[in-house]
Design a protein around this nucleic acid. Sequence first.
DNA 1: TCTGCTTCTTGACTTGAGTCAAGGTCTTCG
DNA 2: CGAAGACCTTGACTCAAGTCAAGAAGCAGA
Lengths: 236, 236
Amino acid sequence: PTTNDQQPTSSPMPSEELKPNIRDLPLFAALSVVELRQLMRQSAVRAYKRNDIVFMEGDAYAGLYLVLSGRVKAIKTSPEGKEQIIHLLGPRELFADVPLFTGGPYPVTAQTLEDTRLLFIPRQAFLDLLHGNPEICMRMLGAFAKRMRQLVNLVESLALKDVTARLARYLADETKRTGNNTLLLPVSKANLAAFLGTIPETLSRSLHDLEDRGIIAVQGKQIVIHNRSVLQELAG
Amino acid sequence: PTTNDQQPTSSPMPSEELKPNIRDLPLFAALSVVELRQLMRQSAVRAYKRNDIVFMEGDAYAGLYLVLSGRVKAIKTSPEGKEQIIHLLGPRELFADVPLFTGGPYPVTAQTLEDTRLLFIPRQAFLDLLHGNPEICMRMLGAFAKRMRQLVNLVESLALKDVTARLARYLADETKRTGNNTLLLPVSKANLAAFLGTIPETLSRSLHDLEDRGIIAVQGKQIVIHNRSVLQELAG
DNA sequence: TCTGCTTCTTGACTTGAGTCAAGGTCTTCG
DNA sequence: CGAAGACCTTGACTCAAGTCAAGAAGCAGA
């Protein structure tokens, strides 16, 4: 794919009623009124359609994004066109924050999974904030640490587990997270495949395999877990 | 492997002459004399033999480590015994810092690659430091960001590239880093294999492949790059 | 220098997962 | 409601990389 030339609709001055929402984020809870106003004045809300590209790997770095609504994936793509999802992002999550500290262009491509609204925060605006606020700095460290964990898990899965084990682990984790034995896939199966480091065909076969063994039941995006302990077992 | 019962030699009160070295680290450059003394009083130098286990995945978290001399690998191991190296660490590098922020036990196993001296810093001692020092906080963010990049690269390599491409990328990166066309592998080939997400047999074949194509020459741990541009090409 | 490790290489074989191609199912919109 | 497109599944085939087993090379200590 190439960078989309069709710009998102962009409101240079985010509306006043957005502020309380931003203040709700733990990350920004410590901000003073002045700082918050300053931040909002420099930021912009951008609206994207499903499958729009937010930025491409290699694009010059301009700033970071906060998901207001919708979902976004951060991906790496091979020359042959295979895609690996690095992160899946939902509302209230920040992304493209790493290059703030490492410099250089965007290291991944960001693409929306559905119609999405993002708050764009220019590089310098965020750095200014960070300097005066140890509180924000600490919260960023917490967020980075959590993502590092996720990445280490992903590396472990890719290097040491087969596709069925990765799928089992994903299902087990989701089930534990929501506490519900019935789960609705939050993304298409093609995207789930890209997240698990495989392709739709192979994912399809793995799902079938688990179903044949009576561990799960699949109906479209709905998956019922029949045997949580065997799933855990398979996940390794 | 199981946790080593053979404790490392440990000096509870690090010698005075260590302080200037610690001060040299950018991370600790901003510390006051008092803070530095406080830190050193609570920390301990520990000496390990080659292949000693520093901690095992799942061990209760006690604190983080600074490499004083030697080399350490952070690994994940599969039930079948295959090993994936997550990080390779050398002098002046900090590790096991992520669980400070995420909580929980050590997420990986740490093992020395050679005789090694580490400075152990208890969890609370480091947190105390962090709270009074926005400067350290920012430097930690920088370090985390850099490691996140490395992890994203590793994920990309594992998911999207074959072993020869991963090897080519490693060689290309090292060559660029040192600026030297002849490079000495810093680790055994078994460890390089574990770092590249493969096994010694496959690595051996990949090295041979590159050699047959006239791109490199291998002699033990010494590798001469004959054709840097083809290597870059292969690395994708 | 000889001996016994550990590390590395090579060959033959197996297999998990990717490719390609065809067809089915679901959804959306005219 | 029906057609077109997106999404998903299935089967047959291929291939990269892992396993197993044997042996070569390098190294360290006696």
